[in-house]
């Protein structure tokens, strides 16, 4: 494992911890897109189905369990514990627009026509667009809690860091992962606007507000 992948995983983990802390601290899930969280749960369940038949390492297994359980816990917090704080009227992005293209791409571009490979490919494409409901919500409200902003930032950094990881692995191991590489470029592109505003406002201690 190289430093890029490790830092990426840590930042991914941090993003989820930030979100859980925010919801628990404020006893509210206001500003958080339930749809994005639902899509991530779907991403993890479809990708980590191999936990039952494909052992990689203790680290890998631990992280998979963490991502699945923590995301389902967030869904629980939003749906049950702090349900009144979540306003579905501003969380209006149609998730069919992300799920359907991901399914089509998974059927066209994959590593083989087995259920496992198609689900894996689906999860990768789905992940690249899963943040859209959250960004859409941010755009509608125009501003966000600092912690929500840090959450989105940490999540964006995670997939961005996987790009040098793949370049590094291509150079050192000759390993090629074109599907995840391309999906990651798409995902990072979706974040570019957000990163820009984060840099120009939040880094200078200002409130996150869209121009």
């Amino acid at each position: 494992m190289n430093i890029f992948r490790f830092l990426a995983d840590l930042s991914h983990m941090a993003s989820i911890v930030i979100l859980i802390l925010q919801i628990r601290k404020t006893k509210s899930a206001a500003g958080v897109s339930y749809k994005t969280q639902f899509l991530y749960a779907l991403v993890f369940v479809t990708r980590y189905i191999d936990i039952f038949f494909h052992y990689v390492s203790l680290y890998n297994t631990f992280m998979k369990i963490f991502f699945v359980t923590s995301t389902i816990y967030i869904l629980y917090l939003m749906r049950v514990q702090y349900k009144p704080s979540h306003d579905p009227n501003i969380d209006t992005f149609r998730i069919e627009y992300i799920i359907a293209p991901s399914a089509v791409l998974a059927l066209i571009i994959n590593h083989g026509y087995t259920l496992y490979e198609i689900l894996w490919s689906f999860s990768v494409w789905l992940e690249s667009g899963a943040i859209l409901p959250q960004l859409f919500m941010l755009q509608r409200t125009g501003e966000a809690e600092t912690l929500t902003v840090h959450y989105i930032f940490a999540l964006g950094i995670y997939r961005l860091l996987y790009i040098p990881n793949w370049i590094y692995r291509y150079v050192t191991e000759g390993r090629v992962e074109p599907i995840a590489f391309l999906a990651s470029l798409i995902q990072t592109a979706l974040y570019s606007d957000f990163f820009y505003i984060y840099y120009t406002k939040v880094m200078q201690g200002k409130k996150f507000e869209l121009p």
Partner: peptide
């Protein structure tokens, strides 16, 4: 590429 099937990442 058989390597890409390994899926050893998260």
């Amino acid at each position: 590429n058989t390597d890409s099937k390994a899926h050893d990442e998260l």
